[in-house]
């Protein structure tokens, strides 16, 4: 267990593992996402109230879900950075922050597009929407802070502290619809209860969520590999890898 944990800290070891994992992640992700989206957008039944406009859920929910779990993953990595000073954890945080920002933006955007016909407004300052906007700004903050400090070690620590401070926003997003009166509806999916949605709607939704997770995994590996190559460009194994690639 600890051995694997310490191995994970080695960029070279991770680079090799990522190489082997990536085709499977991409293949599985694309297959699941395509299946989920085609099923959801074309074959799932209409909603009794919203008609077809509810179908944006098949994009909105996966991106919102992933936007939050990416942040939680970043927070775990940030804790690892602070406690174990593991370089790879910082590589992860810096590589996935822009991905998380894009997912958050996508969630906000699709929500606005859906909100206009359903609620009657693009935007409202309710607790759910506002806390999600704060998440977007947190991602921007992480990206900006990481880019602003050129020293690798101090940048890693500063970013980790910011990520950890921001993680309190995640339960606020999750429970905002229960703690306060909001325009956003409460969660359709709860861990303890049956989803308030029939299976022919939630199965494609689940497929798209899983698919997006796998694609995120693939993309995170790809971005981390790039970051590792840049950071380790002076080491022997990277030089050998580049030479081997050229010949």
């Amino acid at each position: 267990m600890w051995q694997l944990f310490h191995k994970l800290g080695s960029p070279k070891w991770f680079f090799g593992i990522a190489n082997r994992l990536m085709p499977w992640l991409l293949l599985g992700g694309v297959a699941l996402l395509f299946a989920g989206l085609i099923w959801g957008l074309a074959f799932a039944p209409q909603d009794y109230l919203q008609g077809n406009s509810y179908r944006i859920i098949f994009i909105h929910v996966p991106s919102a879900f992933l936007a939050q779990s990416v942040y939680i993953m970043m927070a775990v990595a940030a804790a690892v950075t602070l406690v174990w000073r593991m370089k790879l954890a910082d590589v992860f945080v810096k590589s996935v922050a822009p991905v998380g920002a894009v997912l958050t933006f996508l969630a906000l955007f699709t929500g606005a597009v859906w909100g206009k016909p359903t609620w009657g407004t693009w935007w409202i300052w309710d607790a759910r929407l506002t806390s999600m906007l704060i998440l977007l700004f947190l991602y921007f903050g992480v990206i900006a802070l990481g880019a602003a400090i050129s020293d690798e070690k101090s940048s890693a620590r500063a970013v980790a502290v910011l990520v950890l401070v921001g993680v309190v926003n995640i339960p606020i997003i999750k429970y905002s619809v229960e703690w306060w009166n909001t325009l956003h509806q409460p969660a359709t999916f709860k861990l303890t209860e049956k989803p308030s949605m029939p299976a022919e709607m939630w199965v494609p939704l689940l497929l798209s969520v899983l698919g997006l997770y796998l694609i995120f995994g693939w993309f995170a590996c790809l971005r981390m590999q790039t970051e590792i190559l840049i950071r380790e460009r002076r080491t022997r194994w990277v030089k050998e890898l580049v030479l081997a690639g050229r010949s």
Binding site: P45, Q46, D47, Y48, L49, Q50, Y54, I57, T118, W119, G120, T121, I124, L183, Q185, P186, A187, T188, S196, M197, P198, E200, M201
Partner: peptide
């Protein structure tokens, strides 16, 4: 001066609703 609709968390096909 403004009325917004609040959607609940329930989704279902029209036949089920009927």
């Amino acid at each position: 001066d403004q009325v917004l609709a609040k959607h609940d968390e329930n989704y279902m096909p029209p036949e089920v609703a009927e």
